[in-house]
């Protein structure tokens, strides 16, 4: 390996996975480098968990190769698995073990030497804020603390690769904030791959996004890169003062060519919000205002929306179904 191009921390090379006749993953390839936090997105059943399980060594792929820091998972599973810390979706740990016992057990499995064991486990516990809970039974801990134990076991033996499957589900807002801060700190000198369905979390934490649908990679890139894929769409939001005018407004908007995805976005205090999508460059605002004034509908607000990751995701998903692929 040359020095300028260190091997990727995670490399998926044409990975496919079949269960019986069902193809959960089809020829998936991607790389993650050290210092990157990559968000793994996709609707339920898209193959996220399958990909995570292959990555963590839970089961091997049907075809293709997985390299962890240049180590082939199928040829040296022990070595490759030692380089990975995995936090599964349902953090299920042995309920009748004490926190410290469990972490010592994991440390021994991952080959932490006996004289380092004590200090190492204490270090991970203090990082995850578990020093006071060492002698509690895991089964008695709250969900947030169990999540911390899950994270601590993933960090044991300092793996260069972290795989986190839905790390913040089921936590309260304070805990979510804490876990996110831990992940951000961890991502500085590791490769982190993070699956989640909370999209704002991805914008907050991840340097790059991989979107997966029906077992295939739909799009991959930074959030602005993905947004630029959808430059041909623009979301517009309209607020109307009087709810009684809603049907008339919808009829007017429906008659204007070039307006898609017209819908009532919400109602509050007698006011109605209508949203629709159109192609950019078509300046529809003056026309809409004119038509509304003619019909006597009082318009409170008309606004062009920034595409959020949700919109990007849904847009890509919709276009992806029609067979389009993104860089």
């Amino acid at each position: 390996m040359d020095v300028m191009n260190p091997p990727s921390s995670i490399k998926f090379d044409n990975v496919s996975k079949e269960y019986g006749g069902f193809r959960a993953l089809r020829d998936v390839s991607f790389d993650v480098k050290e210092g990157e936090i990559v968000g793994f997105l996709g609707p339920n059943g898209a193959g996220k968990t399958t990909a995570m399980r292959i990555l963590s060594g839970f089961f091997p792929p049907t075809s293709g190769r997985v390299l962890i820091c240049g180590i082939d998972m199928s040829q040296h599973p022990h070595k490759a698995k030692r380089a990975i810390g995995y936090l599964p979706e349902m953090v299920s740990l042995y309920p009748d073990m004490k926190v410290i016992e469990y972490l010592r057990f994991v440390a021994r499995l991952k080959g932490v030497s006996a004289h380092e064991l004590h200090g190492h486990v204490r270090n991970k516990m203090s990082f995850c804020g578990l020093l006071d809970s060492g002698h509690h039974l895991i089964g008695r801990l709250s969900k947030g603390y169990r999540q911390r134990v899950g994270l601590a076991q993933a960090l044991v033996a300092d793996p260069p690769v972290l795989v986190l499957d839905e790390p913040t589900t089921g936590l309260d807002p304070t805990q979510i904030k804490e876990i996110r801060e831990l992940i951000r700190a961890l991502g500085q000198n590791r490769a982190v791959i993070l699956s989640t369905h909370i999209l704002p979390e991805v914008s907050m934490l991840c340097s790059r996004v991989i979107m997966i649908n029906q077992g295939q990679i739909l799009a991959s890139g930074t959030v602005p890169e993905l947004a630029s894929c959808l430059k041909d769409r623009e979301a517009i939001h309209i607020k109307i003062r009087d709810r009684k005018d809603q049907d008339r407004a919808l009829r007017i908007l429906g008659s204007i060519p070039g307006i898609e995805a017209l819908r009532v976005a919400g109602e509050a205090g007698g006011e109605t919000f209508i949203s629709f999508e159109t192609s950019p460059g078509r300046d529809l605002q003056p026309r809409i205002m004119k038509l509304f004034v003619e019909q006597g509908i009082s318009l409170a607000e008309i606004q062009r929306l920034q595409l959020s990751l949700e919109d990007i995701f849904l847009g890509l998903l919709k276009n992806g179904k029609s067979g389009r692929r993104f860089p």
């Binding site: 839970f58 022990h78 042995y94 499995l109």
Partner: peptide
């Protein structure tokens, strides 16, 4: 039942 097996399989064990 406790789903602890999943994590066990991802540790460096055959």
């Amino acid at each position: 039942r406790q789903e602890t097996l999943e994590l066990l399989f991802t540790y460096p064990l055959s």
